[in-house]
């Protein structure tokens, strides 16, 4: 049996987290290949439906990353993201899906190291959790 290779989706905001990911790349920091990054203009535009859709289509973990609170390029987008994330946690609980499968992180443009470490930690955690729904449809 091959080792479980999780699929992780990361929504990164254009102004901070995506640039942070870029910095991790240009600094040649190593992080797991499991993550697929999707660039969004703001963490506040990542609707809860995007996350559930990803899980529905077979993602094992989903991360939303945005600017630190107070640093949002659009003033308060990340606060919206935070509020929505809280609602999403409620839905995850009712659905019986582990809340650790979704994650909200603040990563600034200068935090390439933090980006790499977050992904490492997240991938390790998802590997421990195993595939969403035990690998069966």
């Amino acid at each position: 049996m091959t080792e479980f290779d999780p699929r992780i989706i990361a929504f990164c905001c254009n102004w901070c987290s995506y640039v942070g990911a870029d910095l991790a790349g240009t600094s040649r920091l190593q992080y797991p290949h499991n993550v697929r990054i999707i660039r969004t203009m703001c963490s506040g535009q990542v609707f809860p439906s995007y996350i559930l859709k990803a899980l529905e289509l077979g993602a094992d973990g989903v991360m939303i990353a945005g600017c630190h609170i107070g640093d949002c390029h659009y003033v308060s987008g990340n606060k919206k993201a935070e509020e929505r994330f809280r609602m999403l946690l409620g839905i995850m609980k009712t659905l019986g899906l582990d809340a650790r499968r979704i994650r909200l992180e603040w990563i600034s443009a200068s935090e390439g190291v933090k980006f790499a470490n977050t992904i490492k930690e997240f991938a390790r955690e998802i590997k421990e959790l195993g595939p969403r729904n035990g690998g069966k449809e």
Partner: peptide
Amino acid sequence: GGLLHSIQRIHSIKDLVQDR
């Protein structure tokens, strides 16, 4: 944004154990 439809599709997973 289709959130409720996603929930409903996730429901079709056979081994789902809900906490409802």
